[in-house]
Nucleic acid binder design. Structure first.
Lengths: 122, 122
DNA sequence: TATGGTACTAACAAATTTGTAAGTTATGGG
DNA sequence: CCCATAACTTACAAATTTGTTAGTACCATA
């Protein structure tokens, strides 16, 4: 997002953990505040910047841009720019990102179950 | 971890997202720097505080405490205190946490695959 | 010539998470 | 009485993420 400081313990720890653990690596990849939401919106096909912005309640253009840029770097979304005026850009999931979908389904089910479970604890 | 500020846009956004999306809810739950590592160490049974600390390279006692406390609140680990001196405390996964294990397996595989894929991009 | 729409970027501020360093508690053994 | 030990706390500082506000470029159209 902003650039990170080289030589911080923080960065060092993160690298050490992510470097060893594929699970943490995978989870870090989708760890930003809005990333999962963005990816979910793209499940059914391409969307342009403004469509994403309008579908995601509360996100600012800055945040949308930042998270899309990261997702792009990570190879999870593909960005296509059309040479038009006014500009048009669209985003879609990459192949490897779509392979996450079934896993998300399961995680999501688990989440729903956990949520109910916690409610009953009150 | 530290208490969060009521009425911040930040908190508000998080609540709104997590409130609606089971997937984000599930991912947030394991989102701290050290949480997955801790949970993984507990896969094979109970461990005491000092054992966790020693098995997790680079973690400080403060961080270990914080993350364990959250995991406990979230119902993912169970904490047991023995009335001894010096104190003894151990931690174990709860039932609902163990239901995540197969999903982690898949995510982890995906992570490994993605990592290879990215290497080949260079 | 002024306007409008789209997809951004820049500068700054606030909130949140993570790390550092130094205590604290209680008690059994010497 | 003093010390060691395990499992924490506390106060503070640094790093990182998120949010706010105000711009930018482009050119077809009015």
């Amino acid at each position: 997002m902003g650039k990170r400081k080289e030589n911080s313990t923080n960065l060092h720890n993160e690298k050490a953990i992510v470097g060893r653990c594929d699970l943490t690596y995978a989870v870090c990849m989708i760890g930003g505040r809005w990333k999962l939401l963005i990816l979910c919106k793209l499940e059914n096909g391409k969307l342009r910047f403004s469509e994403l912005r309008d579908k995601i309640n509360g996100i600012t253009e800055r945040m949308l841009t930042l998270q899309l840029r990261e997702l792009e770097k990570e190879g999870l979304v593909k960005r296509t720019v059309y040479a038009e005026v006014p500009p048009r850009v669209d985003y879609e999931l990459t192949k490897i990102a779509t392979e996450l979908l079934p896993i998300w389904g399961q995680l999501s089910n688990w989440g729903a179950k956990h949520r109910k479970f916690m409610k009953n604890q009150l």
